[in-house]
Amino acid sequence: MEFHPGRLTAIMGPSGSGKSTLMHVMAGLDAPTSGQAWVGEVELSGLNDKGLTNLRRDRIGFIFQAFNLVPTLSALENITLPMDIAGRKPDPAWVDQVIDTVGLRPRLSHRPAELSGGQQQRVACARALASRPDIVFADEPTGNLDSRTGAEILAFLQSSARTLGQTIVMVTHDPVAASYADRVVFLADGRIVDEIDNPTADRVLERMKAFDGTDRTDRTGRNGGA
């Protein structure tokens, strides 16, 4: 499977199908038991712990379901933390645009414990985007957001891919969220079973209805998977 610059890809499938595992392997958070994972020309298994840490810090952004915010830092400090660790100065105009897109301006001085779950999710989204990484991995990025804020963040992810040439990979259960993607990849039991280009929410929903525990054909129509 390849994920190209300038495209937003959604990964979908039943619970336990391997969506998060795939994303963690691609990001170097987990090591594959077989095969290889590459980021550009870099093969991840060839890197030591320091090399993986530097790669994730400099080239990858994460939006986690569990937020993973630092409790002692303010929202703004959490947003700029990856750049602070890397010793890079943020682009103020871009950071301001990200903050306004996720609607955090009034809450920047608050610590995570003082924020709602939805607001913490917005901080996590802003942190992933603020440094303009090559790749953004998003695990249910709108799962704790109201529909309006969720739509704004999805549109921002879509725009970031198309205008900045970022590679964005999003795990989601939501057909509406998937409709913002350029491509949807469907997994079942750890295998690729289908893909849809230029998806709509209705097409995604119809495909999801087919997951009844018996669908084991891959995208070429062969039994077994990719």
Rank of each mutant, 00 (worst) to 15 (best):
P5R: 06
G6M: 05
T9C: 03
A10K: 02
A10C: 05
I11Q: 01
G13N: 03
G16F: 07
K19Y: 01
S20F: 04
L22T: 08
A31K: 12
G35N: 14
A37S: 10
E41P: 00
E43S: 07
G46K: 03
L47P: 11
K50Y: 08
T53G: 07
N54A: 15
R57K: 14
R59V: 04
R59C: 11
I60K: 03
I60F: 09
Q65D: 05
N68W: 02
T72S: 15
T80P: 00
M83H: 03
R88S: 08
V95Y: 08
G103M: 07
R105W: 06
P106D: 02
S109T: 12
S109E: 13
R111K: 15
E114T: 02
L115N: 07
Q119D: 12
C125F: 01
A130Y: 12
D134E: 15
D134F: 05
D134K: 06
I135Y: 06
V136C: 09
A155C: 05
Q158Y: 01
S159Q: 15
T167R: 10
I168D: 07
V169S: 06
P175Y: 00
V176G: 00
A177R: 01
Y180N: 03
Y180S: 09
A181M: 02
D182V: 09
G190V: 01
G190P: 04
D197T: 12
A201I: 05
R203Y: 01
R203K: 12
L205D: 15
R207H: 13
M208F: 11
F211Y: 08
D212L: 01
R216H: 15
T217V: 10
T220K: 04
N223I: 08
N223L: 11
G224C: 13
